[in-house]
């Protein structure tokens, strides 16, 4: 079996002296949706930030498409094909939607109008508001802008840190539909989610993290079916 597209193995590290990650492994294949769930303080967001290079790892290795990127900064990882949507402060509020997307494409030297058209196609709701300041949009639309901004570099791996935090259930379903659509174009998705049940429903792979380490790893549907996981993490 070929090694997976993204592979982050045995990650250990944290922000200060104490480690938050204690041997966490995450892998995503091309076009797969991988979801990280787990209780509060399990290190879900930290694990994703470690994959993105926002955290110094004491141990462990991150490879993307077979290339070792463990030593690279987040900016360099963006150039290697990673796209990251932070949980909060993920847009430029006083800039228009269109300018947000342009800033997403800042590192691109080529013509990015096609990509922008694709993003607008994916999110028709924000396409209508391209001249409006992103800060004036609704919560769900802001998230769409944030995802759109990250897509502008044409990433091969898109990472989303709790994209549905603070949006209504309807908007959440809509957003998940879009994410599935993105994955269908061949982009791998790695996502941290609070709404574990709904997220696992669309997940090809699910990781249940506890205290910075993998507790359960399986396909989304298998995890949903596992009575142990259901009882402990999905509230029955």
């Amino acid at each position: 079996m070929a090694s997976p597209y993204l592979s982050a193995t045995d990650m250990r590290g944290g922000y200060g002296k104490a480690d938050i990650l204690n041997g966490c492994t995450l892998t995503v294949d091309k076009g797969q949706i991988a979801v990280i769930v787990g209780p509060n303080g399990a290190g879900k967001s930290t694990a994703m930030k470690a994959v993105f290079g926002m955290l110094n790892l004491r141990e462990g290795r991150v490879t993307l498409g077979g290339e070792d990127i463990t030593a690279l900064t987040p900016q360099e990882r963006v150039r290697k094909g990673m796209g990251f949507v932070p949980q909060t402060h993920n847009i430029f509020p006083t800039m228009t939607v269109e300018e947000n997307l342009e800033m997403g494409a800042y590192i691109r030297e080529d013509d990015y109008r096609d990509t922008m058209a694709q993003v607008y196609e994916l999110f028709p709701a924000v396409a209508d508001k391209r001249r409006q300041n992103a800060g004036e949009l609704s919560g769900g639309q802001r998230q769409q802008v944030a995802v759109g901004r990250a897509l502008m570099t044409r990433p091969s791996l898109l990472m989303l840190d709790e994209p549905t935090a603070g949006v209504s259930p309807i908007v959440m379903d809509e957003l998940f539909d879009r994410i599935i659509e993105v994955a269908r174009t061949g982009i791998s998705i790695l996502m941290v989610e609070q709404n574990a049940r709904q997220a696992l429903e669309i997940a090809d792979v699910g990781y249940v993290l506890v205290q910075g380490a993998n507790r359960y790893t399986d396909s989304g549907s298998a995890l949903l079916a596992d009575p142990e996981v259901r009882r402990t993490f999905l509230g029955g």
Partner: peptide, 22 residues
Amino acid sequence: SRAGKAMRAYSDNEDLALLSGI
């Protein structure tokens, strides 16, 4: 201009500007 927009982006959201490669 691209540089001017980059300035506004940096003023708006420094971390995201860094992520965007500014």
